[in-house]
Each structure stands twice: as structure tokens, then as C-alpha cells.
């Protein structure tokens, strides 16, 4: 077969096959990633309600955006949520992973339980937690009342609208917990043995072995955590509809409203781009700072 033409050398054939195999990914990249990003950039400079053709308006959308108090409100809500929930989630899931890494009887059962909430998300869970946080008949305030205090007016007071959503996010940290667990189990035992011989105590071992060895995993969880947190939508949509008084107006919820309630596709695209740039900035900062705190094994076996 390969001898039909000299031009079809083995490596060229392989390349051809390679492209064929990569086709789905390449098409996906073009149609569902790069293409839409470009289109989004274009729409962000237009006024477009889908019903008529897009009208070029230059920077108007961006200028309006920066004067739009709801945009700033949505940014504030999203930032508070991210800045609180991501580090909290990272810490809690690391603590859980350390706990679940113990080689004790029945640990598998506990691992199963702790991961359980992570397989559920979306509407049903949001509805459940809305009920759990009901200020008067809900589980949480009942528990608080058992301790002799009176629980806050969750979702009714503006100040107490965002915290339940953050707490709820902690319930679902199973995903990053498992990634930590995988990371923990990848740490060679001989490191601990050597440290033990050197007389290092548990705390020292944690600081000098576990944390550095785990730093790539922390890095991964941090990045995915931030991207996830900046895109929260369902909770705001189902639990609070962005209220009260926009206290839970997440950026993506505001974007959704602009796009699909007010049919301002151009404005929504500008909003999406600003959100994108923010995520990009966060990611870049973390990437740039990573040499300072992410430790990569020198001898890592790599198939690359």
C-alpha cells in the first residue's frame, strides 16, 4: 500500500493518520472554542438582539459596562464568593484527604461517604440546600437552636444570602479531596522513613514533605477551583434568583439575564470577555507565581 507513491513515506502516512485521529478534537476546538471566542469578541463590539442584524457600536458596550452598577455588584458578589470559597474549599478538602489517607480499618467506607456529595450537583442539590437553610424550619437553624443560639435569616437578610451558598460549596469538595488523596498516595514512603530517622516530628514532616510534594496538586485544585467559582450559576438562579437586592447576583447569572432576558447579546458578550480576562489574569498570576511555591520532583518519570 505504502509503495504506491514514494511521496507517501511512512512518517507522512503516520502524520495523515494522526490528523485523522485528531480530527474530532481539532473540529471541536474550532467550532466550540476558538470560533466562539472570536465571535464573542466581535459581538462585544456590536449591539445585537438576534432579531435584527448586529450593529457595530465600537467600545460602547465596554464603556456602559464600566458604568453599570449591577456589573460591579455582580463582580463583587463573584469575587467575594471566589475569594472565600476557594481557599476554604482547598483547606477543608486537604484536611479531609489527610484524614482519609490514614491506613485504618474501614477507611474505604469513609472515602465512599465523603465523596458522595461530589457526584451530585445542580438543581436538586440547590433545592435541598435552600430548604436546609430555611431560616425558620430548616435544618441549620434547628441545629443552631440546639446550641442555644438563634440562627440568622439566611437568604432574607442581604448579608446572609451569600454565606449559605459558600457553605453549600464546601459540602461538595469531594472532587478536590480525591485529587489530594491521589497526590498523597503518590508521595514516596521512603521520604517519610528518612525523615523519621532524622527525628522529624509529624508537623515537620507535613511542612517539609507533604506540602511541597503536594504543591502541584494544590496548584491544580487552585486553578480549577477558581475557574469553577467564577462561573457559579445554578445556585444563584435556583436558590435566590440573584436576590435579595442583588446580593447573590453572580456574574454569569447577570450575563445570562443580559443575553437571554434582555436579548442584549453584544452587551452580554462584552461581559463574558471581561469575565474571561479576569479568569485569565488570575490564572496567569498563579502560573507566574508557581515557581515560588510549586515543587516539581526532579526525577519525575514522564512519558512526554
Amino acid at each position: 500500500m505504502n509503495t504506491k507513491k514514494k511521496w507517501w513515506t511512512r512518517s507522512r502516512l503516520e502524520a495523515l493518520d494522526g490528523y485523522v485521529f485528531m480530527t474530532p478534537a481539532i473540529l471541536g476546538l474550532l467550532f466550540f472554542m476558538l470560533g466562539p471566542i472570536g465571535a464573542s469578541a466581535y459581538f462585544s463590539f456590536t449591539e445585537y438582539d438576534i432579531l435584527s442584524t448586529p450593529k457595530w457600536v465600537g467600545l460602547d458596550n465596554y464603556i456602559n459596562l464600566f458604568q453599570d452598577s449591577l456589573f460591579w455588584q455582580s463582580l463583587k458578589v463573584t469575587m467575594i464568593y471566589s475569594v472565600v470559597s476557594v481557599p476554604l474549599g482547598l483547606t477543608v478538602s486537604l484536611a479531609l484527604a489527610l484524614l482519609l489517607n490514614k491506613n485504618i480499618r474501614g477507611i474505604f467506607v469513609f472515602r465512599t461517604i465523603f465523596y458522595l456529595p461530589a457526584v451530585m450537583s445542580g438543581v436538586a442539590v440547590a433545592l435541598l440546600w435552600k430548604w436546609i437553610f430555611n431560616p425558620d424550619f430548616g435544618l441549620i437553624n434547628w441545629a443552631i437552636s440546639l446550641l442555644g443560639f438563634e440562627g440568622p435569616k439566611w437568604f432574607i437578610d442581604e448579608e446572609w444570602a451569600l454565606p449559605p451558598i459558600i457553605i453549600m460549596s464546601l459540602w461538595g469538595v469531594g472532587g478536590s479531596m480525591l485529587v489530594y488523596l491521589a497526590g498523597l498516595q503518590g508521595i514516596p514512603t521512603d521520604l517519610y522513613e528518612a525523615a523519621e530517622i532524622d527525628g522529624a516530628n509529624k508537623r515537620k514532616q507535613f511542612r517539609n514533605i507533604t506540602l511541597p510534594m503536594l504543591s502541584p496538586v494544590i496548584f491544580f485544585n487552585l486553578i480549577t477551583g477558581i475557574i469553577g467559582a467564577l462561573q457559579v450559576f445554578t445556585e444563584g438562579f435556583i436558590m435566590t434568583q440573584g436576590g435579595p437586592n442583588n446580593a447573590t447576583l453572580f456574574s454569569v447569572l447577570y450575563l445570562y439575564r443580559n443575553a437571554f432576558s434582555y436579548l442584549q447579546m453584544g452587551y452580554a458578550s462584552a461581559l463574558a470577555w471581561v469575565l474571561f480576562l479576569i479568569i485569565l489574569a488570575f490564572t496567569l498570576i498563579i502560573f507566574k507565581s508557581s515557581p515560588m511555591w510549586v515543587f516539581y520532583e526532579g526525577n519525575r518519570r514522564s512519558g512526554k
Partner: peptide
């Protein structure tokens, strides 16, 4: 399969993991 540009495409693909789906929602 070795093909010119493969690693570049793969890196671009990985980079899109950072892309919020909200950005592509409207055009898609």
C-alpha cells in the same frame, strides 16, 4: 502518532480548559 504541529494543537487544547464556558455560551 507523530504529526507536525501535534504538540502545539495539544497545548492549545489544554489551554481551553481554562476557558469559562460563559464566554462561549452566547456565540454557540
Amino acid at each position: 502518532l507523530n504529526a507536525p504541529g501535534r504538540n502545539f494543537i495539544f497545548m492549545v487544547l489544554l489551554a481551553t480548559m481554562m476557558l469559562p464556558s460563559a464566554v462561549t455560551m452566547v456565540p454557540i
